[in-house]
Design a binder for these strands. Structure first.
Lengths: 225, 225
DNA sequence: ACGATGTGAATGATCGTTCATTAATATCAA
DNA sequence: TTGATATTAATGAACGATCATTCACATCGT
């Protein structure tokens, strides 16, 4: 067991770095075993202290989950925030978004459970709103880029919301199955998803045209939540 | 509260249909609130009996989860099982697979948590193997169809495993966000995903060609778990 | 002295599960 | 048809375990 040796009673070593240490451990354990399966006892044991001590750094267990999710969402949003208003090649912007998103998702260690979705049901209304708001920001940026691409004529007329959901679905799920050891690297995976989103798998151009031109009756109609 | 009135002490009214009633309630509650959040007490209350009585029908709480997942996987696999060996138009077969999968995913009521992935970590090794085996069957069928399409020349040369994962990612995640009330119907959603998989969102044919022909270095290399 | 850091024991709640027991019904021999 | 017996269905109380959390107190650096 990789328990950390805490500075026993040693003050002024920095509350901040201790919080970060605990957060890093929580992130690892929560992703590996799920929020409900990881108790404060287990987290304290990994950190190397008694459970009670954790409450000197976080008010509740939920607060740990919240701060962790906030950090992760920030890591996803920050690199692409400038794309919301900035004009430019929409294709390259989409490539950038997918690449950064995949890297953020696969940055902290190994695979894990579907923590994010479970978490939204655990958080208090206030905390949940904060996380959902960040997710909405991500979705908004993606949609802006998708719309920009349509205006530039490089993307087909399509429902940006729906396409955005599809992209997020594919990217977030990589956490469940991707192992960089075997097969491709993270960069190659991101590149694959990007190209898959752009061009699909269809070889026949004529059928491609027939399917997507003119836009079907639902291309502009879908209203996902 | 929609509690069912059990046949109090009335024997021979059918163990089987009672198990099915409990299973239906468990499915609803597990998807709505998550496995860990739904206790045997809550399930018993919904069914209209004491918690102890549930153990006349299921050995453990995990057994309920397992049977429920087995049913759901069967509902996904059965309609497409014949496609594994049967030759035919791969495009239509893929359309059929996606359509059936979406319908199976969205058949039982409303939205919910990411139950499936969480569940795999809860199940015993034996039960987990059974479910994973069914999931593998689904993946195998999809890959067969994707390969068939490549041989027929209607799909681009690509990694069937990777494309299969992408399709499953998009479809399974619909459960999280799709509401048939607003916007499109289930059929329209399935059609969208199908067309998205086929053709992506790209408008420019030249770029499409450049991106996908010849196949990139990783198109045949990726080895997802 | 004071605040940061950590302990150890205890809290009430909830969890899945077990137990002995009862009521209603089905089965079947006399 | 009746009475004995077995089976199914359900009860209510309790079990031990674990959960997040609290509290009073100790330790140590500055």
């Amino acid at each position: 067991m990789d328990r950390v040796e805490p500075n026993k009673g040693r003050a002024r070593a920095g509350t901040h770095i201790r919080k970060k240490r605990i957060l890093a451990l929580a992130r690892k354990l929560f992703w590996q075993n799920g929020y409900h399966s990881v108790g404060m006892r287990e987290l304290a044991r990994a950190y190397g202290c008694q459970p009670a001590n954790l409450y000197n750094y976080f008010e509740t267990k939920e607060a740990i989950l919240f701060e962790m999710l906030r950090e992760e969402m920030a890591k996803i949003i920050e690199p692409i925030a400038h794309l919301e208003e900035q004009d430019g090649d929409a294709v390259e912007q989409l490539r950038f978004i997918i690449s950064r998103h995949v890297k953020a998702i696969l940055s902290h260690p190994r695979s894990g459970k579907a923590l994010f979705d479970v978490a939204l049901g655990i958080l208090s209304r206030r905390n949940r709103n904060a996380i959902v708001s960040m997710r909405d920001t991500y979705e908004r940026i993606v949609r802006k880029v998708l719309r920009r691409g349509q205006e530039q004529g490089v993307f087909l007329p399509c429902d940006e919301k729906l396409v955005g959901v599809m992209i997020a679905s594919m990217v977030t799920r990589t956490k469940m199955w991707f192992h960089p050891k075997k097969g491709a690297t993270v960069d190659e995976l991101a590149d694959f998803i990007f190209r898959f989103v752009l061009g699909g798998i269809q070889a026949d151009e004529a059928t491609h045209e027939a399917l997507w031109w003119p836009p079907g009756p639902m291309d502009k109609k879908l209203k996902p939540i």
